[in-house]
Write a protein that binds this DNA or RNA. Structure first.
Lengths: 193, 193
DNA sequence: TTGTATTTTGAATGTTCGTTCAAGATATGC
DNA sequence: GCATATCTTGAACGAACATTCAAAATACAA
Protein backbone atom coordinates (compact mmCIF):
# COMPACT_ATOMS: atom_id res chain seq x y z
CA UNK A 1 0.00 0.00 0.00
CA UNK A 2 3.03 2.20 -0.17
CA UNK A 3 5.83 2.35 -2.68
CA UNK A 4 9.48 2.87 -1.97
CA UNK A 5 10.35 6.52 -2.26
CA UNK A 6 13.86 6.34 -3.56
CA UNK A 7 15.03 6.10 -7.17
CA UNK A 8 16.71 2.73 -7.43
CA UNK A 9 19.06 3.68 -10.26
CA UNK A 10 20.18 6.86 -8.52
CA UNK A 11 20.83 4.96 -5.32
CA UNK A 12 22.82 2.30 -7.13
CA UNK A 13 24.92 4.88 -8.98
CA UNK A 14 25.70 6.62 -5.70
CA UNK A 15 26.67 3.31 -4.14
CA UNK A 16 28.83 2.56 -7.19
CA UNK A 17 30.89 5.70 -6.80
CA UNK A 18 31.17 5.15 -3.06
CA UNK A 19 32.56 1.66 -3.67
CA UNK A 20 34.88 2.98 -6.37
CA UNK A 21 36.15 5.68 -4.03
CA UNK A 22 37.15 3.55 -1.07
CA UNK A 23 36.76 -0.03 -2.21
CA UNK A 24 34.10 -2.38 -0.86
CA UNK A 25 35.78 -3.20 2.43
CA UNK A 26 36.53 0.34 3.50
CA UNK A 27 33.15 1.73 2.53
CA UNK A 28 31.14 1.77 5.74
CA UNK A 29 27.37 1.77 6.01
CA UNK A 30 27.69 5.37 7.18
CA UNK A 31 29.46 6.20 3.93
CA UNK A 32 26.70 4.45 2.01
CA UNK A 33 24.05 6.26 4.01
CA UNK A 34 25.70 9.57 3.18
CA UNK A 35 26.16 8.65 -0.49
CA UNK A 36 22.72 7.23 -1.15
CA UNK A 37 20.64 9.25 1.32
CA UNK A 38 19.11 5.99 2.54
CA UNK A 39 19.07 5.01 6.19
CA UNK A 40 20.60 1.64 7.12
CA UNK A 41 17.22 0.03 7.61
CA UNK A 42 16.07 1.00 4.13
CA UNK A 43 19.23 -0.39 2.58
CA UNK A 44 18.74 -3.67 4.39
CA UNK A 45 15.08 -3.74 3.39
CA UNK A 46 15.88 -3.19 -0.28
CA UNK A 47 19.17 -5.06 -0.73
CA UNK A 48 19.41 -7.49 2.21
CA UNK A 49 22.83 -6.28 3.30
CA UNK A 50 25.97 -4.46 2.23
CA UNK A 51 27.02 -7.29 -0.03
CA UNK A 52 23.58 -7.30 -1.68
CA UNK A 53 24.02 -3.61 -2.40
CA UNK A 54 27.37 -4.37 -4.03
CA UNK A 55 25.82 -7.07 -6.20
CA UNK A 56 23.07 -4.70 -7.32
CA UNK A 57 25.63 -1.96 -7.96
CA UNK A 58 27.78 -4.32 -10.01
CA UNK A 59 24.77 -5.24 -12.12
CA UNK A 60 23.86 -1.58 -12.63
CA UNK A 61 27.45 -0.83 -13.57
CA UNK A 62 27.44 -3.62 -16.14
CA UNK A 63 24.25 -2.21 -17.61
CA UNK A 64 25.53 1.37 -17.73
CA UNK A 65 28.76 0.33 -19.35
CA UNK A 66 26.96 -1.82 -21.85
CA UNK A 67 24.86 1.16 -22.98
CA UNK A 68 27.92 3.39 -23.10
CA UNK A 69 29.76 0.81 -25.21
CA UNK A 70 26.90 0.57 -27.69
CA UNK A 71 26.91 4.35 -28.07
CA UNK A 72 30.55 4.31 -29.08
CA UNK A 73 30.00 1.80 -31.87
CA UNK A 74 26.60 2.69 -33.29
CA UNK A 75 27.75 5.20 -35.92
CA UNK A 76 28.56 4.41 -39.53
CA UNK A 77 32.22 5.34 -39.44
CA UNK A 78 34.77 2.56 -39.92
CA UNK A 79 34.84 0.24 -36.92
CA UNK A 80 38.54 0.86 -36.32
CA UNK A 81 37.98 4.60 -36.22
CA UNK A 82 35.34 4.08 -33.58
CA UNK A 83 37.72 1.83 -31.69
CA UNK A 84 40.35 4.55 -31.71
CA UNK A 85 37.82 6.97 -30.25
CA UNK A 86 36.92 4.39 -27.61
CA UNK A 87 40.56 3.92 -26.66
CA UNK A 88 41.15 7.66 -26.46
CA UNK A 89 38.18 7.90 -24.13
CA UNK A 90 39.72 5.21 -21.93
CA UNK A 91 42.84 7.35 -21.70
CA UNK A 92 40.75 10.35 -20.69
CA UNK A 93 39.04 8.28 -18.00
CA UNK A 94 42.44 7.20 -16.68
CA UNK A 95 43.49 10.83 -16.50
CA UNK A 96 40.38 11.99 -14.71
CA UNK A 97 41.15 12.63 -11.08
CA UNK A 98 37.76 11.75 -9.69
CA UNK A 99 37.69 8.10 -8.81
CA UNK A 100 34.18 7.59 -10.12
CA UNK A 101 35.86 7.02 -13.47
CA UNK A 102 37.71 3.91 -12.41
CA UNK A 103 36.30 0.53 -13.33
CA UNK A 104 34.19 -0.94 -10.55
CA UNK A 105 34.55 -4.43 -12.01
CA UNK A 106 38.34 -4.56 -12.00
CA UNK A 107 38.51 -2.70 -8.70
CA UNK A 108 36.24 -5.21 -7.00
CA UNK A 109 37.95 -8.09 -8.81
CA UNK A 110 41.33 -7.07 -7.45
CA UNK A 111 39.93 -6.62 -3.97
CA UNK A 112 37.81 -9.73 -3.60
CA UNK A 113 39.23 -12.34 -5.95
CA UNK A 114 39.61 -15.64 -4.09
CA UNK A 115 37.65 -14.35 -1.13
CA UNK A 116 34.11 -14.38 -2.47
CA UNK A 117 33.65 -16.89 -5.26
CA UNK A 118 30.17 -15.71 -6.18
CA UNK A 119 31.18 -12.08 -6.57
CA UNK A 120 34.20 -13.16 -8.58
CA UNK A 121 31.99 -15.19 -10.91
CA UNK A 122 29.59 -12.31 -11.45
CA UNK A 123 32.46 -9.98 -12.28
CA UNK A 124 34.08 -12.54 -14.54
CA UNK A 125 30.80 -12.94 -16.43
CA UNK A 126 30.49 -9.19 -16.97
CA UNK A 127 34.06 -8.90 -18.19
CA UNK A 128 33.56 -11.92 -20.45
CA UNK A 129 30.53 -10.23 -21.99
CA UNK A 130 32.63 -7.14 -22.64
CA UNK A 131 35.33 -9.22 -24.27
CA UNK A 132 32.76 -10.91 -26.44
CA UNK A 133 31.49 -7.52 -27.58
CA UNK A 134 35.07 -6.63 -28.49
CA UNK A 135 35.37 -9.88 -30.42
CA UNK A 136 32.24 -9.08 -32.43
CA UNK A 137 33.74 -5.69 -33.14
CA UNK A 138 36.83 -7.22 -34.72
CA UNK A 139 34.67 -9.65 -36.66
CA UNK A 140 32.71 -6.73 -38.04
CA UNK A 141 35.93 -4.97 -38.94
CA UNK A 142 37.15 -8.08 -40.72
CA UNK A 143 33.94 -8.45 -42.71
CA UNK A 144 34.17 -4.84 -43.80
CA UNK A 145 37.72 -5.29 -44.97
CA UNK A 146 39.27 -3.01 -42.36
CA UNK A 147 41.26 -5.90 -40.97
CA UNK A 148 43.16 -8.47 -43.01
CA UNK A 149 41.07 -11.61 -42.86
CA UNK A 150 42.30 -14.71 -41.09
CA UNK A 151 43.13 -12.98 -37.83
CA UNK A 152 41.94 -14.50 -34.56
CA UNK A 153 39.32 -12.01 -33.41
CA UNK A 154 38.96 -13.56 -29.99
CA UNK A 155 42.69 -13.27 -29.43
CA UNK A 156 42.63 -9.66 -30.58
CA UNK A 157 39.83 -8.92 -28.13
CA UNK A 158 41.70 -10.54 -25.27
CA UNK A 159 44.84 -8.62 -26.12
CA UNK A 160 42.92 -5.36 -26.19
CA UNK A 161 41.29 -6.16 -22.86
CA UNK A 162 44.67 -6.96 -21.37
CA UNK A 163 46.01 -3.67 -22.66
CA UNK A 164 43.17 -1.66 -21.16
CA UNK A 165 43.52 -3.43 -17.82
CA UNK A 166 47.21 -2.64 -17.88
CA UNK A 167 46.65 0.95 -18.87
CA UNK A 168 44.42 1.45 -15.84
CA UNK A 169 46.96 0.06 -13.41
CA UNK A 170 49.76 1.94 -15.12
CA UNK A 171 47.82 5.18 -14.80
CA UNK A 172 47.84 4.85 -11.01
CA UNK A 173 51.56 5.60 -11.02
CA UNK A 174 51.98 7.67 -14.21
CA UNK A 175 48.97 9.86 -14.59
CA UNK A 176 50.29 12.05 -17.38
CA UNK A 177 48.47 12.43 -20.68
CA UNK A 178 51.40 12.04 -23.06
CA UNK A 179 52.65 8.76 -21.65
CA UNK A 180 49.23 7.15 -21.47
CA UNK A 181 48.27 8.33 -24.95
CA UNK A 182 51.50 6.94 -26.38
CA UNK A 183 50.77 3.56 -24.80
CA UNK A 184 47.19 3.54 -26.08
CA UNK A 185 48.40 4.52 -29.55
CA UNK A 186 50.89 1.68 -29.62
CA UNK A 187 48.26 -0.75 -28.39
CA UNK A 188 45.96 0.34 -31.20
CA UNK A 189 48.78 0.03 -33.70
CA UNK A 190 49.81 -3.44 -32.52
CA UNK A 191 46.26 -4.68 -32.85
CA UNK A 192 45.14 -3.04 -36.05
CA UNK A 193 48.30 -2.88 -38.13
CA UNK B 1 70.73 -6.06 26.97
CA UNK B 2 68.60 -8.42 24.96
CA UNK B 3 68.10 -8.89 21.24
CA UNK B 4 64.86 -9.52 19.42
CA UNK B 5 64.30 -13.21 18.97
CA UNK B 6 62.48 -13.31 15.67
CA UNK B 7 63.98 -13.38 12.19
CA UNK B 8 62.98 -10.09 10.63
CA UNK B 9 63.06 -11.31 7.03
CA UNK B 10 60.97 -14.39 7.81
CA UNK B 11 58.43 -12.29 9.64
CA UNK B 12 58.20 -9.83 6.77
CA UNK B 13 57.79 -12.59 4.20
CA UNK B 14 54.99 -14.13 6.26
CA UNK B 15 53.32 -10.74 6.54
CA UNK B 16 53.75 -10.26 2.78
CA UNK B 17 51.85 -13.42 1.93
CA UNK B 18 49.17 -12.61 4.50
CA UNK B 19 48.63 -9.22 2.88
CA UNK B 20 48.65 -10.79 -0.59
CA UNK B 21 46.07 -13.36 0.51
CA UNK B 22 43.42 -11.04 1.90
CA UNK B 23 44.56 -7.56 1.06
CA UNK B 24 45.73 -5.05 3.64
CA UNK B 25 42.32 -4.04 4.95
CA UNK B 26 40.96 -7.51 5.48
CA UNK B 27 44.10 -8.86 7.12
CA UNK B 28 43.49 -8.59 10.86
CA UNK B 29 46.11 -8.48 13.56
CA UNK B 30 44.99 -11.99 14.47
CA UNK B 31 45.82 -13.10 10.94
CA UNK B 32 49.19 -11.41 11.21
CA UNK B 33 49.82 -12.99 14.58
CA UNK B 34 49.04 -16.41 13.11
CA UNK B 35 51.14 -15.77 10.01
CA UNK B 36 54.19 -14.30 11.68
CA UNK B 37 54.07 -16.07 15.05
CA UNK B 38 54.52 -12.71 16.72
CA UNK B 39 52.19 -11.45 19.40
CA UNK B 40 50.50 -8.09 18.82
CA UNK B 41 52.76 -6.34 21.32
CA UNK B 42 55.88 -7.52 19.53
CA UNK B 43 54.56 -6.35 16.19
CA UNK B 44 53.83 -2.92 17.63
CA UNK B 45 57.22 -2.84 19.27
CA UNK B 46 59.03 -3.67 16.04
CA UNK B 47 56.93 -1.92 13.40
CA UNK B 48 54.87 0.72 15.27
CA UNK B 49 51.55 -0.53 13.93
CA UNK B 50 49.84 -2.50 11.20
CA UNK B 51 50.61 0.12 8.60
CA UNK B 52 54.27 0.11 9.62
CA UNK B 53 54.34 -3.64 9.07
CA UNK B 54 52.92 -3.08 5.59
CA UNK B 55 55.58 -0.50 4.81
CA UNK B 56 58.32 -2.87 5.95
CA UNK B 57 56.77 -5.73 3.98
CA UNK B 58 56.58 -3.57 0.87
CA UNK B 59 60.26 -2.74 1.22
CA UNK B 60 61.18 -6.39 1.70
CA UNK B 61 59.10 -7.29 -1.32
CA UNK B 62 60.89 -4.69 -3.43
CA UNK B 63 64.21 -6.12 -2.32
CA UNK B 64 63.23 -9.73 -3.00
CA UNK B 65 61.93 -8.90 -6.43
CA UNK B 66 64.99 -6.88 -7.24
CA UNK B 67 67.23 -9.87 -6.49
CA UNK B 68 64.96 -12.18 -8.46
CA UNK B 69 65.06 -9.80 -11.41
CA UNK B 70 68.83 -9.66 -11.39
CA UNK B 71 68.98 -13.46 -11.43
CA UNK B 72 66.93 -13.57 -14.59
CA UNK B 73 69.26 -11.24 -16.46
CA UNK B 74 72.71 -12.15 -15.21
CA UNK B 75 73.52 -14.87 -17.78
CA UNK B 76 75.33 -14.32 -21.06
CA UNK B 77 72.51 -15.36 -23.37
CA UNK B 78 71.00 -12.69 -25.58
CA UNK B 79 69.02 -10.18 -23.56
CA UNK B 80 65.85 -10.82 -25.52
CA UNK B 81 66.09 -14.55 -24.82
CA UNK B 82 66.33 -13.78 -21.12
CA UNK B 83 63.38 -11.46 -21.45
CA UNK B 84 61.33 -14.24 -23.02
CA UNK B 85 62.18 -16.49 -20.08
CA UNK B 86 61.19 -13.71 -17.70
CA UNK B 87 57.85 -13.28 -19.43
CA UNK B 88 57.16 -17.01 -19.40
CA UNK B 89 57.83 -17.00 -15.69
CA UNK B 90 55.30 -14.21 -15.25
CA UNK B 91 52.75 -16.42 -17.00
CA UNK B 92 53.56 -19.28 -14.66
CA UNK B 93 53.11 -17.00 -11.66
CA UNK B 94 49.73 -15.89 -12.98
CA UNK B 95 48.73 -19.55 -13.31
CA UNK B 96 49.84 -20.49 -9.82
CA UNK B 97 46.82 -20.89 -7.60
CA UNK B 98 48.46 -19.84 -4.37
CA UNK B 99 48.04 -16.15 -3.91
CA UNK B 100 51.53 -15.63 -2.59
CA UNK B 101 52.52 -15.33 -6.25
CA UNK B 102 50.51 -12.20 -6.90
CA UNK B 103 52.28 -8.87 -6.89
CA UNK B 104 52.06 -7.15 -3.52
CA UNK B 105 52.84 -3.80 -5.10
CA UNK B 106 50.01 -3.76 -7.61
CA UNK B 107 47.63 -5.39 -5.14
CA UNK B 108 48.29 -2.71 -2.54
CA UNK B 109 48.27 -0.02 -5.22
CA UNK B 110 44.82 -1.02 -6.38
CA UNK B 111 43.55 -1.18 -2.83
CA UNK B 112 44.98 2.00 -1.37
CA UNK B 113 45.54 4.39 -4.24
CA UNK B 114 44.14 7.81 -3.35
CA UNK B 115 43.58 6.80 0.25
CA UNK B 116 47.11 6.82 1.60
CA UNK B 117 49.36 9.13 -0.37
CA UNK B 118 52.55 8.00 1.35
CA UNK B 119 51.96 4.31 0.63
CA UNK B 120 51.07 5.18 -2.94
CA UNK B 121 54.32 7.09 -3.33
CA UNK B 122 56.40 4.23 -1.95
CA UNK B 123 54.74 1.78 -4.31
CA UNK B 124 55.08 4.14 -7.25
CA UNK B 125 58.80 4.49 -6.51
CA UNK B 126 59.29 0.71 -6.45
CA UNK B 127 57.42 0.26 -9.69
CA UNK B 128 59.37 3.13 -11.26
CA UNK B 129 62.62 1.40 -10.29
CA UNK B 130 61.39 -1.78 -11.94
CA UNK B 131 60.53 0.13 -15.10
CA UNK B 132 63.93 1.74 -15.12
CA UNK B 133 65.54 -1.69 -14.90
CA UNK B 134 63.46 -2.74 -17.89
CA UNK B 135 64.60 0.36 -19.75
CA UNK B 136 68.23 -0.49 -19.13
CA UNK B 137 67.51 -3.98 -20.43
CA UNK B 138 66.28 -2.62 -23.73
CA UNK B 139 69.24 -0.27 -23.92
CA UNK B 140 71.56 -3.23 -23.46
CA UNK B 141 69.69 -5.15 -26.15
CA UNK B 142 70.04 -2.19 -28.48
CA UNK B 143 73.77 -1.87 -27.87
CA UNK B 144 74.23 -5.56 -28.61
CA UNK B 145 72.35 -5.30 -31.87
CA UNK B 146 69.41 -7.41 -30.77
CA UNK B 147 67.07 -4.49 -31.24
CA UNK B 148 67.09 -2.11 -34.22
CA UNK B 149 68.63 1.09 -32.91
CA UNK B 150 66.63 4.25 -32.62
CA UNK B 151 63.79 2.75 -30.64
CA UNK B 152 62.54 4.50 -27.52
CA UNK B 153 63.69 2.17 -24.75
CA UNK B 154 61.71 3.97 -22.07
CA UNK B 155 58.55 3.63 -24.10
CA UNK B 156 59.24 -0.07 -24.65
CA UNK B 157 59.70 -0.57 -20.93
CA UNK B 158 56.45 1.19 -20.14
CA UNK B 159 54.62 -0.85 -22.73
CA UNK B 160 56.00 -4.07 -21.28
CA UNK B 161 55.04 -2.99 -17.77
CA UNK B 162 51.54 -2.18 -18.95
CA UNK B 163 51.30 -5.59 -20.57
CA UNK B 164 52.38 -7.42 -17.44
CA UNK B 165 49.97 -5.42 -15.29
CA UNK B 166 47.21 -6.32 -17.73
CA UNK B 167 48.20 -9.95 -17.85
CA UNK B 168 47.85 -10.18 -14.10
CA UNK B 169 44.36 -8.70 -14.04
CA UNK B 170 43.36 -10.77 -17.05
CA UNK B 171 44.51 -13.93 -15.29
CA UNK B 172 41.99 -13.33 -12.51
CA UNK B 173 39.21 -14.18 -14.93
CA UNK B 174 40.94 -16.48 -17.46
CA UNK B 175 43.40 -18.61 -15.59
CA UNK B 176 44.21 -21.03 -18.38
CA UNK B 177 47.73 -21.56 -19.63
CA UNK B 178 47.13 -21.42 -23.38
CA UNK B 179 45.34 -18.08 -23.36
CA UNK B 180 47.83 -16.39 -21.07
CA UNK B 181 50.81 -17.76 -22.95
CA UNK B 182 49.38 -16.56 -26.25
CA UNK B 183 48.98 -13.06 -24.81
CA UNK B 184 52.50 -13.06 -23.41
CA UNK B 185 53.87 -14.28 -26.73
CA UNK B 186 52.14 -11.53 -28.63
CA UNK B 187 53.34 -8.96 -26.13
CA UNK B 188 56.90 -10.17 -26.63
CA UNK B 189 56.45 -10.10 -30.39
CA UNK B 190 54.98 -6.59 -30.43
CA UNK B 191 57.89 -5.27 -28.41
CA UNK B 192 60.82 -7.11 -29.96
CA UNK B 193 59.81 -7.51 -33.60
C1' DT C 1 -11.77 10.50 6.50
C1' DT C 2 -10.37 6.24 8.14
C1' DG C 3 -7.81 1.85 8.27
C1' DT C 4 -3.87 -0.59 7.14
C1' DA C 5 0.05 -2.25 4.90
C1' DT C 6 4.48 -0.71 3.98
C1' DT C 7 8.36 2.17 4.38
C1' DT C 8 11.30 5.13 7.00
C1' DT C 9 13.88 6.14 10.93
C1' DG C 10 17.80 6.02 14.05
C1' DA C 11 18.94 4.25 18.40
C1' DA C 12 20.61 -0.14 20.22
C1' DT C 13 23.16 -4.61 19.70
C1' DG C 14 26.83 -7.73 19.65
C1' DT C 15 31.03 -8.41 17.31
C1' DT C 16 35.45 -7.48 15.62
C1' DC C 17 38.95 -4.42 15.01
C1' DG C 18 43.61 -2.00 15.93
C1' DT C 19 45.99 -0.72 19.76
C1' DT C 20 47.83 -0.38 24.56
C1' DC C 21 50.07 -1.70 28.72
C1' DA C 22 51.55 -3.76 32.88
C1' DA C 23 53.29 -8.02 34.37
C1' DG C 24 56.38 -11.74 33.42
C1' DA C 25 60.46 -13.75 31.07
C1' DT C 26 65.14 -13.69 29.68
C1' DA C 27 69.55 -12.45 27.73
C1' DT C 28 73.49 -9.71 28.70
C1' DG C 29 77.08 -6.96 31.56
C1' DC C 30 79.32 -6.86 35.80
C1' DG D 1 74.86 -14.86 40.73
C1' DC D 2 72.93 -10.60 40.71
C1' DA D 3 71.06 -6.47 38.49
C1' DT D 4 69.01 -4.42 34.75
C1' DA D 5 67.62 -3.35 30.33
C1' DT D 6 64.91 -5.22 26.82
C1' DC D 7 61.70 -8.22 24.84
C1' DT D 8 57.53 -11.13 25.17
C1' DT D 9 52.95 -12.05 26.50
C1' DG D 10 48.02 -11.80 26.31
C1' DA D 11 44.32 -9.71 28.61
C1' DA D 12 41.85 -5.41 28.31
C1' DC D 13 40.29 -1.04 25.94
C1' DG D 14 37.57 2.10 23.25
C1' DA D 15 36.20 2.80 18.62
C1' DA D 16 34.05 1.41 14.57
C1' DC D 17 31.65 -1.86 12.27
C1' DA D 18 27.45 -4.41 10.02
C1' DT D 19 23.12 -5.45 11.37
C1' DT D 20 18.52 -5.44 13.77
C1' DC D 21 14.15 -3.84 15.31
C1' DA D 22 10.32 -1.49 17.21
C1' DA D 23 8.26 2.85 16.88
C1' DA D 24 6.88 6.63 13.87
C1' DA D 25 5.53 8.26 9.40
C1' DT D 26 3.08 7.95 5.25
C1' DA D 27 0.82 6.61 0.91
C1' DC D 28 -2.96 4.28 -0.81
C1' DA D 29 -7.65 1.74 -0.87
C1' DA D 30 -12.22 2.14 0.51
Amino acid sequence: MRNAEFDREKVLRSAMTAFMDKGYGKTSMQDLKAATGLHPGSIYCAFDNKRGLLLAALEQYRLDRSVEFADFFCGDEPVLTQLKTYLDDQVQKCLSCDSSQTCLLTKALNEMAEQDAEVQQIIADSLAAWQQALTQLFERATMQGELTSGRDCEHLARYLAMGIYGLRTFAHTHPDAETLQALADQLYHDICA
